[in-house]
């Protein structure tokens, strides 16, 4: 294979990877504070994209995105306040079923309010056909925007969880909620905050990738499955892990297309996921000890 083509496949892989990674990162925040997987994460991504498209009719792009992120954050808070907060010591299974229910509810509400049509924000720079040429390889500027957003989110989360008091409280809450409460941490508020935060990040991801992937009321499920896959693969709870795993899966899928029929693309990524989980049950970058603590 020519070098130029190899690089072009690599770019395709990076494009898939960023999309998976930005969605996967969102899963980790709620997992980090509550130990549950929020299956409505994909719907937050959809909500962000759809709201931004609607707002963009009235205000400039940056404002529309900021507005969409704020609206989705409010939706995240609402979901937590109405469905999660009042539960006394909910089991993980119960919370998962609740989030699945919420995801269906949001999807149907979106269908009623926006209809079934497909929308997208305009390209942030250039348009649908523009691409940057780097040594014979073509890259859409929107891919670079997504990549930059992805990096920004990870850096922000790393700083937030490691170096702010609020972030440390959230981590304490995740490690042991009772102990955290005994130390005077308002655990219920932190769970709300984690929903707000992950809704916001999901919405931002939804805005940035919408020119590439489009958005419609029903895109949440598909994105959530891929995002969930990379979050597990990278090790639940690790944002860096999710990003690394996202790129790994993306690049694998792209190169598998070059060698095999494209229909096997998803089979390849799931096969890799299974293989890695057999060898490293806590994911590529996850720590086994931390996972055991959570399930204990």
């Amino acid at each position: 294979m020519q070098l130029e083509l190899v690089l072009q496949y690599l770019v395709a892989g990076l494009t898939y990877g960023t999309i998976y990674a930005v969605v996967g990162v969102g899963f980790n925040i709620i997992y980090n504070t509550t130990g549950i997987i929020n299956f409505a994460q994909g719907e937050f991504v959809m909500l962000g994209g759809m709201t931004a498209v609607t707002l963009h009719r009235f205000v400039p792009l940056p404002l529309a995105i900021a507005g969409a992120v704020a609206v989705t954050m409010a939706a995240g808070a609402l979901v937590e306040a109405t469905c999660i907060r009042w539960l006394e010591k909910p089991s993980v299974l119960r919370m998962i079923i609740i989030t699945i229910g919420v995801s269906i509810l949001i999807r149907e509400l979106a269908l009623v309010s926006w209809g079934e049509s497909v929308r997208a924000l305009p390209y942030f720079t250039g348009n649908e056909v523009s691409s940057l040429t780097l040594g014979g390889v073509h890259v859409s500027p929107q891919v670079l925007w997504s990549l930059a957003t992805c990096v920004l989110i990870v850096v922000f989360l790393w700083f937030f969880f490691q170096h702010t008091s609020l972030g440390r409280q959230m981590r304490a809450c995740a490690a042991n909620r009772d102990a955290a409460a005994l130390c005077g941490i308002a655990t219920k508020n932190l769970v709300t905050l984690s929903f707000v935060l992950s809704a916001g990040i999901g919405a931002l991801a939804g805005c940035v990738v919408s020119p590439i992937t489009y958005t419609a009321y029903n895109i949440g499920t598909g994105l959530a499955i891929k995002g969930f896959t990379v979050a597990i693969l990278g090790g639940l709870g690790s944002s860096m892990g999710a990003v690394g795993a996202g790129f790994l899966v993306g690049v694998l899928e792209a190169f598998s297309v070059s060698l095999m029929p494209a229909a096997y693309k998803d089979a390849i990524s799931v096969a890799v996921l299974l293989a890695i989980l057999f060898l490293r049950p806590s994911g590529l970058f996850g720590s086994g000890a931390a996972a055991r603590l959570k399930t204990a």
Binding site: M1, Q2, L5, Q8, Y9, V11, A12, G13, T15, Y16, I19, V209, I212, T213, Y214, I219, G222, L223, E253, A254, F255, V257, S258, A262, K265
Partner: peptide, 14 residues
């Protein structure tokens, strides 16, 4: 439900 098909069109280019 494909969201990006860059790899597929790269194959056509090749």
């Amino acid at each position: 439900a494909a969201t990006d098909l860059t790899a597929e069109v790269t194959k056509l280019k090749a």
